[in-house]
Design a protein around this nucleic acid. Structure first.
Lengths: 307, 307
DNA sequence: GTCCATCGGTTGATTTTTGCACCACCGTTC
DNA sequence: GAACGGTGGTGCAAAAATCAACCGATGGAC
């Protein structure tokens, strides 16, 4: 075979199901993908895809070699990981993946502190809602908020850190307005991905009426609740830290998920990974009460909570 | 990793030990290899080779990823093999590997017959002294003359066919000359790879003196013995078929090796491979007496041996 | 039905890769 | 010591792969 890259393109198309989809994933023009696939087909002397108007679908021949392409992909990923793992220099890159909310609302100052402490480490922060794939070395370390159960893929190591609670929040200004003017009613501000308001959030002291306001991300959600558009459910480490917000009177905090730090088996012994791992675990431990929702003091001076 | 081909180049260099050596194997300019390797090193952020004046030698980092590159290579080979194995058309290519002597001196007419019988099969005959690698699909079927023991790599299937004997030959013309002129002595014609003349070939009836004549291939060896330069050891299927040659009087035939037909586990069920395999086995069976050296009739009409 | 997004396919311009012709260097051989 | 065959390294021109901008077709939303 005189081009392994053709197999890489084949795999991308097989995974995405379309040439165009593969092309964006690969970061190349779709005509390139087209040509490389037909090149591979010509070399093998077999049709690998059914060229449907709706996309590329694997033929039996394509199915048969898919697992080998996947195996090559895994090898190539592991290859990068191993080289990275060998690197015991403090100097060098370090990719950390975590959910956007944790980054922007809580840990960014700690990341800043870490870069000050170790300026020679080139910290790359990748925030995404989706769980980033450590196996393919999209990241060297991942901080995850796990909702259900954590099933660790092979070769991955996890440390369970901390339970995270959430509660129902409202703008203080808006709360006062409601108290003074009983006609004024609150509405739910819901993030689409979270679904409808859970039953535990219902509160006898506060009537919530009208259709919910839907937002797509936490930034909008925060803006909306700050602007006094209604009430919303937030992780306590977000809501409790925001001076303009208060928990809706009578609301309890509820278990939301558990924080984990994940590392790859090959890279976890690397100096940079170990260093960051220990650092961030220590920092998160400091937020223990905040994350679990036990740090909230009704009404009183919230300023003391900020670090 | 955005170029699996770089890994392919890395592997080629690691195997050959030099950039230039790899370049000829890959069929590209050596500067290309140079650039691809440094490209890979840059992407991984690690030195893979020690750049010695005598060649490229793997660093520990390079050693560590070598097995993954090999694994990718194996996957890529198997990928081609699988696609080929799926192909149940009679029409298509078929690569057969065998030692040059067998091809040129015995089986070529049978190959000709096969292509006449199945003109739609694109027969590619690869003759080489080295055992061709079936696993990497350099060939779909190999006919081998095995001298020692056959240890089959995994996934390869072999059929034991026939013992091959060899004997000591001389030009009939030269033999007569010696008989008439006792001063005239014979010399050994030796093929380098075969080493010195074995003890069993010694013959009390024929004095062999002087330094041996060394040749590098069988074609030269045949020319030399035909020209009456001396005596030589040949497989019986070569010597007995040549009307101008005779076994040295009193010489016995000795076991030389065993013929095997090897196929890859994945491709052996392919129509073309099965067809050729059965055909050539049948043909070789016809040569049974010839191969084992039992067909030789002293002096008498050798013409009857040719098919 | 219309609109719109997405799909694959094609073609000419552009960028990237590759090949070629060199160089310097080292060890062997004559 | 000179010549030679081997090694890696380096500009520059040619070749090849890629990009960008199209096209027609399809399928779903409205």
């Amino acid at each position: 075979m005189d081009s392994w890259d053709d197999i890489r393109f084949f795999l991308a198309v097989a995974r995405s199901g379309s040439v165009r989809g593969a092309s964006v994933g690969l970061g190349v023009n779709h005509s390139t993908v087209l040509r490389r696939v037909s090149n591979l087909e010509a070399q093998l002397g077999a049709l690998l895809f059914e060229k449907l108007p709706s996309g590329y679908k694997l033929t039996p021949a394509g199915e048969e070699i898919l697992d080998l392409a996947i195996s090559m992909d895994e090898d190539s990923s592991l290859l990068q990981t191993r080289v990275f793992a060998r690197d015991q220099n403090l100097t060098g890159p370090l990719r950390v993946a975590l959910p956007p909310s944790l980054a922007s609302e809580l840990l960014m100052p700690d990341f800043a502190a870490f870069t000050q402490l170790h300026p020679e480490i080139e910290l790359q922060i990748a925030t995404s809602y989706e769980a980033v794939n450590l196996t393919t070395r999209q990241a060297d370390l991942a901080i995850r908020l796990v909702y259900d159960q954590l099933t660790l893929p092979p070769h991955l190591f996890g440390t369970r850190l901390q339970d995270v609670h959430r509660s129902v929040y409202i703008s203080r200004e808006f709360q006062n307005r409601i108290l003074n003017n009983p006609q004024c009613s609150a509405r739910w501000i819901l993030k689409e991905e979270d679904g409808p308001a859970p039953s535990w959030a219902a509160n006898p002291d506060l009537e919530i009426g009208g259709p919910p306001i839907n937002v797509s991300d936490m930034a909008s959600q925060l803006s909306a609740v700050r602007a006094g558009m209604g009430v919303t459910i937030l992780p306590c480490f977000v809501g409790d830290l925001d001076r303009s917000l208060a928990r809706v009177a009578g609301s309890t905090s509820k278990y939301y998920g558990t924080l984990w730090v994940l590392t790859h088996g090959e890279t976890r012994k690397t100096k940079r990974v170990r260093l960051f791992s220990e650092f961030i675990k220590a920092r998160i431990a400091l937020y223990s009460a905040l994350l679990s929702g036990e740090a909230y003091i009704d009404d009183a001076s919230k300023g003391s909570l900020t670090k």
